[in-house]
Amino acid sequence: MLTATITTQQGRIDKVLPQLFPQYSRSQFHRLIKSGAVTVNGNVPRAKDQVRQGDLIQVTEPAPVHLDLQPEDIPLDIVYEDDDVLVVNKPQGMVVHPAPGHPDHTLVNALLYHCPLSTINGTYRPGIVHRIDKDTSGLLMVAKTDRAHRSLAAQLKAKTNIREYTALVHGNIREDHGTINAPLGRNPKNRKQQAVVPGGRPAVTHFTVVHRYGDYTLIKCQLETGRTHQIRVHMKSIGHPLAGDPLYGPRKTLAGNGQFLHAGKLGFTHPVMGKQLIFTAPLPPVFEKTLAQLDKRGRIQ
């Protein structure tokens, strides 16, 4: 049972609940409200009901769902592990969790073979606190217990994590650094894409130029938010799409295995020890090789 008393929070209860309990999303709370698992002062509310100062909120958490996934003996590049958390360096080309079209051979299948995972995210996303795209490589934090999952999710919500990406983009970025603050949502003209849209979810990306190659620029990106395809869409929105990006980039681009985007630095506070942990992962070989070619020839046709 989760319990909280409204102090300064305002607005609809379905919007306030994720602020109080960030381990659950707004859509999850919609389902919990509909099922009667949420009460306000002992009464079951509607999702649109407003909260008031002093309201007692109680949430009956759903029972853990039995995982019906097949553990698979797939090699993992584990950067750190203890009884509570695990940090893994995901290779480019691996899907994080099962979904339509990708029922197996995912990171979750590999993790389940390796160790027990938290159950908060349900059947298909056990242990997964945050995701990166299939063709993005790099570091992910994974929760092995529900306690760890709640802590890591709360840190993401509070924006206290460190998430730094290396990206290679088209064009010559003149500024040495910048911030893109543009709301993101589903592209109304292409449901497979995200786009900058009025009324979308807030999204903020900070970038710093590392090296200029003439037709391409190597940058570091730090995320304040973690929206779907955030870096890919934000960089496209300022005229510098990621090299190799099959969804948002131009047809004439660098050969590789998808977008040149790597989650190279990850930091968080350990959910039990309270210690700040920071990890790094080197660029994958195809990324390093491409940069060496660009450095040698100035550009690749």
Results as ranks from 00 to 15, higher is better:
residue 3 T to V: 12
residue 4 A to P: 03
residue 5 T to S: 03
residue 17 L to C: 02
residue 19 Q to E: 14
residue 19 Q to N: 11
residue 29 F to T: 09
residue 30 H to S: 09
residue 31 R to M: 11
residue 33 I to N: 02
residue 40 V to E: 09
residue 47 A to L: 10
residue 54 G to E: 00
residue 61 E to M: 13
residue 62 P to H: 09
residue 64 P to R: 09
residue 74 I to G: 05
residue 78 I to H: 13
residue 79 V to E: 04
residue 83 D to F: 05
residue 85 V to G: 11
residue 89 N to F: 11
residue 91 P to E: 03
residue 96 V to F: 00
residue 99 A to H: 07
residue 100 P to K: 11
residue 101 G to K: 12
residue 108 V to E: 00
residue 108 V to M: 02
residue 111 L to V: 03
residue 115 C to H: 02
residue 116 P to I: 10
residue 120 I to D: 06
residue 122 G to F: 03
residue 122 G to N: 07
residue 122 G to I: 06
residue 127 G to T: 05
residue 133 D to A: 12
residue 135 D to K: 04
residue 136 T to G: 11
residue 137 S to T: 00
residue 140 L to K: 01
residue 141 M to V: 14
residue 141 M to Y: 11
residue 141 M to S: 01
residue 143 A to C: 06
residue 154 A to G: 07
residue 155 Q to S: 12
residue 156 L to G: 14
residue 161 N to F: 07
residue 165 Y to T: 09
residue 167 A to P: 06
residue 170 H to R: 04
residue 171 G to F: 02
residue 172 N to K: 07
residue 177 H to E: 13
residue 177 H to L: 01
residue 181 N to T: 13
residue 191 R to T: 07
residue 192 K to D: 03
residue 195 A to P: 08
residue 195 A to K: 06
residue 200 G to D: 02
residue 200 G to T: 09
residue 206 H to R: 12
residue 208 T to W: 15
residue 209 V to Y: 07
residue 211 H to E: 15
residue 222 Q to D: 13
residue 226 G to K: 07
residue 232 R to I: 08
residue 243 A to L: 02
residue 244 G to R: 00
residue 252 K to L: 12
residue 253 T to D: 10
residue 254 L to A: 07
residue 255 A to E: 14
residue 256 G to D: 01
residue 263 A to D: 05
residue 265 K to V: 15
residue 267 G to H: 10
residue 272 V to P: 00
residue 282 P to F: 09
residue 282 P to A: 14
residue 286 V to K: 05
residue 291 L to E: 08
residue 295 D to K: 14
residue 301 Q to V: 11
